[in-house]
Design a protein around this nucleic acid. Structure first.
Length: 504
RNA sequence: UCCUCAGUAGCUCAAUGGUAGAGCAUCCGGCUGUUAACCGGAGGGUUGUAGGUUCGAGUCCUACCUGAGGAGCCA
């Protein structure tokens, strides 16, 4: 352990919460916290952000990015610890006992504990730096020649193959911080609007929407499946005594809580076993699904708009440094795009209006525009990228192309559905007002070829004090893609799961 | 799943069917309060896999594998 005695003395008092400081002889866990704090360990974000006075002793820990030596007898070592985009410059002089033996051999990826004095930098690139009094190497890099995260440009495709090491790059560090920021902003938004976070199950017995391929959850011996008299697999002896799957959506479950607690949402992983190979699809992805009782489609759309604006506003403010990085290195329009969304109301149009716009468009589409058919990717792109230039909310789709639970509009041809389409991404939100009338719901079950008997508990919600309610699903990775300009959702989730790929 | 394109050094890419090369990274040396440092040198290859055509295949053909872009499905 590196010794920093002056730091230990200096750090003990001032930064502690008052409640901790009052105790003269703290015991147990609090004592351990004190011991940690008394080492004056600081994150690089703290040090560069002005939380540490120039002239004071600090301990910083992190991973080497670059090293440059001066024959004047010292080396510049840049270290990073993930707390912010910037690196911290450590000046290590040849009077350090391990200068020749270790410091002169440090390379990208080595982990360090550095003790020293924070001083004003004599160089140009940074305001402050650490003049090291001790540098302890925690871990060396086994084979620098083949260490994948060498200090050079890498393609995202290559970094995907080393997903366990890619958080060490600027880009993936920034993505992780932005992802965290968006998740926190989302929870803050709902909390301040009176929404409760409901932890809906990951394992589900119902095949939710009847749409989308499911991952089966089973403890049966796949090589020796028990079968019933008709020769079909018999799951009665399986772990749950029935078929079970990974959830494709928490919506149906959260509706149950909505119809008691009024304002609720889920946030968690969802799973689709679809063989989709695109930059916008994952087999495992995270979804935000609010559900509001006594709300109609309009209120639902307003909630979606308010949520997105809050997310974008927050990330621009809280993670401005990372956003500037994305603007410089990933997508020149990253910041400008978010500002435009925050500053202007969302465009709203019905499906019928959208079809009219597409029919009038001076553009030849590969797929014909026809009322009743679902909008193709090229149609959505035209609407959001060419016609509006910002996200657009399309509502009231034909019932034939939407799910059974969406509320049938007066006229009986369309349902109270809404999609939010974003430039470059396509559908970022899908939602609807839910069908709260039991007899209409039952009719829709039949039209969609679903056996209502499988939805007994869901029907109960309409039998016992039903109310109009509405909700939507926001794809978290697509949102992060939109925010950062990262073109592939596989790069905004730490360990992407896609068909044929579950490494790490 | 379908269509298109691509797999050559750790990475990014060259190489008319005829001796596999560069830049970056790495290592060594030089220089410098340096900062995507700079200058010099060195090491580094079963050309995705398996077949085939040919005197000769990184290059042409077939199959497969992997990746990317687009489509469908969707968030």
């Amino acid at each position: 352990m590196v010794r920093c005695r002056r730091a230990a003395r200096a750090g003990a008092g001032s930064r502690l919460p008052a409640a901790l400081r009052r105790r003269s002889r703290p015991q147990g866990p609090i004592r351990r916290i004190l011991q940690t704090i008394s080492m004056a360990k600081r994150t690089i974000a703290d040090v560069l952000g002005g939380a540490v006075d120039v002239g004071s002793e600090v301990t910083v820990q992190g991973w080497v990015r670059t090293r440059r030596d001066s024959k004047a007898g010292f080396s510049f070592v840049h270290i990073s610890d993930g707390s912010c985009l910037k690196t911290l410059q450590v000046v290590a002089g040849n009077r350090l006992p391990n200068y020749a033996s270790e410091i002169l051999h440090l390379g990208s990826g080595c982990s360090l504990t550095v003790c020293g004095e924070l001083v004003e930098s004599r160089g140009r690139g940074q305001a402050v730096e650490i003049r090291a009094t001790a540098v302890e190497v925690a871990g060396w890099v086994d084979d620098p020649d083949t260490y994948p995260i060498s200090p050079k440009r890498h393609t995202f495709e290559f970094l995907r193959e080393v997903a366990h090491l890619r958080p060490r790059t600027n880009t993936f560090g920034a993505i992780a911080r932005v992802r965290h920021c968006l998740a926190k902003a989302m929870h803050d938004f709902f909390d301040s609007n009176g929404y409760l976070w409901i932890h809906t199950p990951i394992i589900t017995g119902s095949d939710t929407e009847g749409a989308g391929e499911l991952f089966r959850v089973s403890t049966l011996d796949a090589a020796n499946l028990p079968r019933d008299s008709a020769g079909n697999p018999d799951y009665s002896g399986d772990f749950f005594g029935r078929e079970a799957f990974l959830t494709v959506s928490g919506q149906l479950n959260v509706e149950a809580y909505c119809l008691a607690l009024t304002r609720v949402y889920t946030f968690g992983p969802t799973f689709r076993a679809e063989n989709s190979n695109t930059s916008r699809h994952l087999a495992e992805f995270w979804m935000i699904e609010p559900e509001t009782a006594f709300a109609d489609l309009d209120e639902n759309a307003s909630l979606a708009e308010a949520l997105l604006k809050h997310l974008f506003r927050t990330v621009l403010e809280v993670r401005s440094e990372d956003m500037e990085f994305f603007e410089r290195h990933v997508d020149r329009k990253a910041i400008q795009r978010l500002r435009a969304v925050v500053d202007q109301p969302f465009e709203r149009m019905t499906y019928t209006e959208a079809v009219r716009i597409l029919e009038r468009a001076r553009r030849r589409f590969r797929f014909p525009v026809q009322w009743g058919a679902d909008l193709q990717s090229e149609h959505e792109r035209y609407l959001t990228e060419t016609h509006v230039g910002r996200p657009v909310i399309v509502t009231n789709y034909p019932k034939g192309i939407k799910a059974f639970y969406m509320r049938l509009d007066d006229g009986g041809e369309t349902v109270a559905a809404m999609d939010v389409l974003a430039p470059g991404i396509g559908e970022i939100i899908g939602g609807s007002q839910r069908e709260e009338r039991l007899e209409v719901l039952d009719r829709r079950f039949l039209e969609c070829g679903i056996d209502p008997a499988h939805y007994g508990w869901y029907r109960d919600l309409r039998r016992y004090g039903t109310v109009p309610h509405a909700g939507f699903g926001l794809g978290f990775e697509r949102t992060i893609s939109y925010v950062t300009g990262m073109a592939n959702v596989r790069d905004v989730i730490p360990f992407p799961r896609t068909p044929g790929s579950a490494e790490f």
